[in-house]
Design a protein around this nucleic acid. Structure first.
Lengths: 213, 213
DNA sequence: GTTAACAGGATCGTTGACAATCGCAGACTA
DNA sequence: TAGTCTGCGATTGTCAACGATCCTGTTAAC
């Protein structure tokens, strides 16, 4: 039960059902998830150590607010870890993996042509998740998943930027090419370039004072 | 209270008071830490999401057993993250920071000369922790701390290897030199070399079938 | 009008008891 | 003897109630 509630609450936070700063009252949540306060408390403790929620002694929990500065650090950490993942994927992926990666890129190209940002964002998530699996690197995969969750809000803002997916597509294609070629160094390097471009956008937002563009 | 118990339990696990595989019964722990079962439960949930303990439904918790293969992955992840930290430290550290790093290296040299492995191990921890602080990269620092905790058992085995500290010292000195020179790339590279040598030792253990050498 | 003390409400934190579950030992059967 | 079933002890999971703490709005004094 407690793991169920943890997953549900995490999902609801990531989906925007609860926004940054929202208080997470135990009693209403217990009612919402049809469980006792104990399960909610455990879920909050777990999500707090995951960095998704903030707990203040005797004050309760709230959805953690991630500053742009922190999002940049998160993306930097992601950059090196996903670089590792890309390198390992280049080393361990099979021909059928390559086929799947190519097909994702193809779908991405169609999505960019149709200008369906929502679809592209899903494909983006799918690509990164598949790379995590192919790498066989469970530790890095777990850390990256957590980091992605933490910065999900900013990632969303990024995904709805006009023209963003076109730029992103080229980078993704470069990553996939390097992996198919089995070039570990190039794969890591392409991944770094990709996430550096994310960092560049975040830095612009930061310089703009964190206001929504 | 619950944060206190979490810290105490974590410390006891890292210190070896509880060994990998040991069951963590709630009632005895509650007595040991002079608290209620609820606090122990919360601590266990927190440490489970940190990856230090393992929870089975209706079966209770136990100290997580980390295989050599997993320790290698942990060290690989540490390698890229500490590379990032070293680079940031090279960028942000002050002259007084440099003085402190130099003094740690000096103490390390004395420790190696005296062959006091225990002291060297402490200095090793201090150096890495200071680099985390100097980098100003809280995200990477937090992740690395967690990874170090997870592999603590193997790290201990490593630290008591004869001749290990002498080799390690040169690598640490190279890292510090690069940071003082303000060379981000060299700092990251030296850190990678350092942790690669740890991975090499772990790989030897793995090939030896995980038996203690 | 501003500040300080106070009371009330809301919420977390803790405790103790009870229900649910699991593993194991011992009995029973083929 | 081997296999299966059942009851028991140990431990976790859940719940409700109580106590502690903090915030807020009100009142009174200066």
């Amino acid at each position: 039960m407690i793991d169920t509630v943890t997953d549900e609450l995490r999902t609801d936070i990531l989906s925007g059902r609860f926004e940054p700063g929202d208080r997470l009252l135990e009693l209403p949540l217990a009612e919402h998830y049809a469980c006792g306060r104990a399960a909610v408390r455990s879920a909050i403790v777990a999500l707090a150590t995951e960095g998704l929620v903030e707990r203040e002694a005797n004050r309760g929990a709230s959805v953690r607010r991630i500053s742009v500065a922190e999002a940049i650090q998160i993306t930097q950490a992601r950059s090196v870890l996903e670089g590792l993942i890309a390198a390992q994927a280049a080393r361990h992926s099979t021909p059928s993996d390559h086929e799947e990666l190519r097909s994702i890129i193809t779908e991405m190209e169609e999505s960019v042509a149709d200008d369906t940002g929502r679809v592209y964002s899903n494909l983006n998530g799918r690509l990164h998740r598949r790379l995590q699996d192919m790498s066989g690197h469970e530790i890095a995969a777990q850390l990256v998943s957590n980091l992605r969750d933490r910065a999900a809000h900013h990632q969303y803002r990024l995904s709805v930027m006009p023209g963003r997916s076109r730029e992103s597509l080229q980078q993704h294609a470069a990553i996939v090419d390097a992996i198919i070629a089995g070039d570990e160094f190039a794969a890591a390097s392409a991944m770094h370039d990709h996430l550096q471009s994310v960092i560049d956008v975040l830095s612009q937002w930061q310089d703009a004072g964190g206001r929504h563009p």
